[in-house]
Design a protein around this nucleic acid. Structure first.
Lengths: 244, 244
DNA sequence: ACCGTCTGCGTACAGTGTTCGCAACAAGGG
DNA sequence: CCCTTGTTGCGAACACTGTACGCAGACGGT
């Protein structure tokens, strides 16, 4: 395939333009994780194998190991990469508005890349990636600055908010992944699943009432409401904990 | 190996005691998921393959497929199985105490089985398992009964609490899994990782201060404190949202 | 005693992550 | 200009995975 670079039928004109130029820029670590993210976005988590990633980049699978020691390491890089998409304001809009915006940014990132729901568990939560570090730093600045938290309290408060946001986002992402795998419209899908749900909920009186009254109108807005409801509850609970 | 059951060297005494008794009880679906849980607890998530699970049960790998259609289905069963360990009080102790106890039970379950952090993402969050249904039913009873929430609010409040508890638990589980993989004592491990952490945090002023002041005393208690801090914040925020 | 159904299992196949050694390249020094 | 040295891509190979298929033995009912 790409042997043509050094095969004899190529004219050996020693010019800067015919020079093979060993396409270095197609096989650096940054390019590999970028292509991995694109592959995950396009085909989902079960499509990420070293071989398919290699063919996507026009190289052999084993070539990737020159720039990435492991598949696990690649996944750590990928996770850190998408963490880089999270924006956290500087706090000039006030603590609460800034945290709300940051939480929304995290959720948006997760919903843009639902496969991290799978990958977050597979890797030991890479705490040392530069983008994760940057995120933590900005969050600390936000909680200690505009939030007026003390250093220890800021740590706890950030953990609480992030646990909620990630927990909620991962749950949504798992739902959306299953939905995507079904290949159907969301309304069709829940309509198809409804009988099984009703049957499964049948022995449980409270659940049964909820399943029966389940509104299927626009679940997108329902999800948004659930998220903002929980986030506001947490922020309400955090507000009086500031020592100010 | 187990051919002896029907091989001719076995005395063919037609008695109830020498009868082969086809050990049915070693290969039902319940036994399979129970053994899978034991395997996961003992060896971690990367050790769960159909073949190793089969040899653990003294059967061939393909025999498992008579009782479980898929590996994914097995995982759904396993997840539902450990969900069955969660206890939720009936609310007679009051709403807040009951929710706190339930949240603690969920966290304890996750820390007992840290591998669900990986499995929760791999499966599309099996909402229809009987134990998940039971848990949701009891939670609804708790929030609508002792909590005096309306049905819609109860749904949102439960989502919020569960998102936090699961998010926090999964994060802890990921940490503990990495720790277990290192095979070291927790103090040793963080001491070994500290230089890398300091170096990674170096460009970020707020984080740097936190990493420098990081207390390694007893992280177990620190984790507990983080959990109860966040949980109390959420419950504080939920309390005034009850229509009472 | 027979027959249909159920269950365990050996074999096989496609696909996975990863190792190893070889060949082609780039750069530098004589 | 050649030769050396390190770097990078790659084919082959290995151990292992999930799973389909068909066979044979066991069970249950008549």
């Amino acid at each position: 395939m790409r042997y043509a670079r050094w095969m004899a039928d190529e004219p050996k004109i020693a010019s800067a333009w015919t020079r093979p130029r060993r396409q270095r820029e197609t096989l650096s670590r940054e390019q590999i994780v970028a292509e991995a993210v694109k592959l995950l976005d396009a085909e989902g988590v079960e499509a990420l194998s070293m071989r398919t990633l290699g063919t996507r980049m026009g190289t052999a699978a084993t070539s990737l190991y020159r720039h990435v020691t492991n598949r696990d390491e690649l996944i750590e890089f990928v996770v850190d990469e998408v963490y880089g998409e999270i924006e956290v304001p500087d706090g000039s809009e006030g603590w609460r508005a800034s945290v709300t915006a940051c939480a929304g940014s995290v959720r948006a990132m997760i919903l843009r890349h639902p496969w991290i729901a799978s990958l977050l568990g597979q890797v030991g939560l890479s705490y040392l990636g530069p983008n994760v570090m940057r995120l933590n730093d900005r969050m600390l600045a936000l909680f200690e600055g505009a939030g007026e938290f003390g250093p220890v309290e800021a740590d706890k408060a950030i953990s609480a908010v992030m646990a909620f946001v990630i927990g909620m986002g991962v749950s949504e992402a798992a739902w959306l992944t299953s939905l995507a795998r079904s290949g159907q419209d969301e309304r069709e899908w829940v309509a198809e699943l409804a009988p099984a749900a009703v049957k499964a909920a049948e022995p449980y009186p409270h659940l049964r009432a909820h399943v029966a009254a389940g509104r299927v109108d626009d679940m997108r807005q329902t999800r948004d409401e659930h998220f903002t409801y929980g986030l506001n509850a947490i922020l309400d609970g955090l507000q009086p904990r500031r020592p100010s």
